[in-house]
């Protein structure tokens, strides 16, 4: 995504960061990425990130879980080996269904929760033995880092502008592949 050199701009206050993001974007500079120690509310909107569709995924996974539960219990209890248990109707899934509601519910939740979290991990590329990619260790403590694209901009003017937005530190990062 990053083409050429970028500036790593550090802020040490979330309110200053939010204002800076708005100013940077309204001045037509490009923010490649932001690293923050905690969820800064409204940052995704200010950066223009699209909505996440994980909730929709979760709904679909839930429907899959419900179907799996229904098909499984229909096969086991009705088709493969119907038994008379306490006189419950073993010949019809629909009539025996009240007894199956707890499992239908549990499997819906099971599928919706676990598959959504797995999707989240894969989409955000986080898993065991993954190397962390935050450029400065302070971004998990109390610093906020913006990666600003320098392509086609005058570096001095850009840094001056960024310092005016309240940045506490700025460093130029050369990207090897494009340098």
């Amino acid at each position: 995504m990053a083409s050429g050199n970028v500036l790593h701009v550090l802020y040490n206050d979330d309110d200053v960061l939010m204002k800076a993001v708005k100013e940077i974007r309204s001045n037509k500079y490009r923010i490649n990425e932001a690293y923050t120690p905690f969820p800064v509310h409204g940052l995704d909107k200010a950066m223009g990130l699209p909505h996440t569709r994980l909730a929709i995924c979760s709904f679909i996974y839930g429907l899959i879980g419900l179907s799996v539960a229904t098909l499984m219990m229909n096969f086991i209890m009705i088709e493969d080996w119907p038994r008379n248990i306490g006189g419950k109707p073993s010949f019809s899934y629909l009539q025996n269904m009240p007894a199956f509601v707890p499992i239908m519910f549990e499997l819906t939740v099971f599928f919706a929760a676990h598959l959504m979290v797995i999707t989240f991990y894969l989409r955000s590329k986080i898993w065991p033995f993954k190397k962390a990619e935050n450029p400065d260790p302070r971004t998990t403590d109390d610093h906020f880092l913006l990666e600003v694209d320098t392509a086609g901009h005058d570096l001095d003017a850009l840094s001056k502008f960024l310092y005016e937005t309240g940045a506490s530190e700025i460093s130029l990062i050369h990207n090897e592949e494009h340098a």
Partner: peptide
């Protein structure tokens, strides 16, 4: 899990 705290991650 290599958590980096990107805006999208959050």
């Amino acid at each position: 899990f290599g958590w980096s705290g990107r805006a999208k991650d959050w």
